[in-house]
């Protein structure tokens, strides 16, 4: 039975299970077609909302108030960039740069600090190491709400409440548990011989970390970097509490317009779209990296 199966799975299948005859194959085909149709409809469900945002952002106020964005496809001539130019003229660019000024340092700092800690957890001996690492794991699920009030107090005391550094540090602290966890697990997988060879040569620990281990971790660092970047870029709550108007990123600037959603669509739609361009570009340029990487992983 086994050998037969291995060599001629088709025949074995039909012999063992007579119901897989012509009829069932026809049904399979039809079913396959149906699945395609269902998936196309589902894909539309996922695409249309974002497409709607884009089209609304490209239409004038009067058009948006009188007809649905989907009429755009029958009258494409109504497209205009007025909403975007108005938005940029209204000072939205400064919140764009605030977003950048928060996201870039928060990402770099998390990678650097977590890589050092992860290295220590993976390759150094010190008392209480395992217990400390369990603490890191425990902190993974701590909701940021817990820190809003105490850190607001602390920032008031330090005089950094409302400023970009305060927002950055908060992001770094709450990004660390995951980052340490991820990088430590990666470092543990690096062949021991590599490190031992370097240590035998008498290289300083810092040098081993910077020239041997960290460069090896590029894939892990890259993925961590992308996700930390997206997380900080997309944050609203931390900015809401810790960034004042001068330091506010795009999410907070847009949120302040939500109250009059109906009349502010001409600001909100282009603003939301601008805020998601960079994440989407990142996502599409690295999609292989995470989606296919995930698929590749499943072979194991």
């Amino acid at each position: 039975m086994t050998t037969l199966t291995a060599s001629q799975p088709g025949t074995a299948g039909s012999a063992g299970a007579p119901r897989r005859g012509v009829l069932s194959r026809v049904l399979d085909k039809a079913g396959g077609g149906l699945v395609q149709v269902v998936l196309i409809v589902l894909a539309l469900f996922w695409l249309l909302p974002t497409l709607g945002l884009l089209v609304v952002s490209l239409r004038g106020d009067t058009d948006n108030n009188s007809s649905g964005w989907w009429t755009f496809f029958t009258k494409p001539a109504q497209m205009t960039f007025d909403n975007y130019s108005n938005l940029l003229a209204s000072g939205f660019t400064s919140s764009f740069w605030n977003t950048v000024a928060i996201t870039v340092p928060a990402t770099i700092l998390v990678i650097g600090i977590a890589a050092m800690a992860g290295y220590a957890f993976a390759w150094m001996e010190f008392p209480g190491r395992d217990a400390l690492f369990l603490v890191v794991i425990a902190l993974l699920v701590v909701p940021i709400q817990i820190a809003l009030i105490p850190i607001a107090k602390m920032y008031g005391f330090l005089g950094i409440f409302g400023s970009i550094p305060g927002v950055v540090l908060f992001h770094v602290a709450f990004g660390l548990p995951f980052a340490i966890f991820l990088l430590r697990n990666f470092f543990v997988g690096i062949p021991k011989e590599l490190l031992e060879a370097a240590r035998m040569d008498g290289a300083a620990e810092w040098k081993i970390f910077a020239t041997v281990v960290f460069p090896l971790a590029k894939p892990a660092v890259a993925s961590l970097g992308i996700f930390q970047f997206l997380w900080v870029w997309n944050d609203l709550l931390i900015a809401l509490v810790f960034a004042d108007t001068n330091a506010q990123p795009m999410t907070k600037a847009l949120q302040s317009q939500m109250r009059q959603f109906g009349t502010n669509v001409d600001i909100l739609a282009p603003g939301a779209f601008l805020s998601l361009i960079i994440p989407l570009v990142l996502f599409f340029s690295f999609q292989r990296y995470f989606v296919q990487g995930l698929m590749a992983g499943s072979v194991k």
């Binding site: 794991i137 993974l140 699920v141 701590v142 909701p143 709450f174 990004g175 548990p177 995951f178 966890f181 991820l182 697990n185 990666f186 997988g189 894939p219 892990a220 890259a222 993925s223 961590l224 992308i226 996700f227 930390q228 997206l230 997380w231 990296y289 995470f290 989606v291 990487g293 995930l294 590749a296 992983g297 072979v299 194991k300």
Partner: peptide, 21 residues
Amino acid sequence: PDETTETKGEVTTHPALDDDV
């Protein structure tokens, strides 16, 4: 494949940040 696998596997979960463990 080892590295790809491991990083990406974990990373996809990151937007949930805290939940990835």
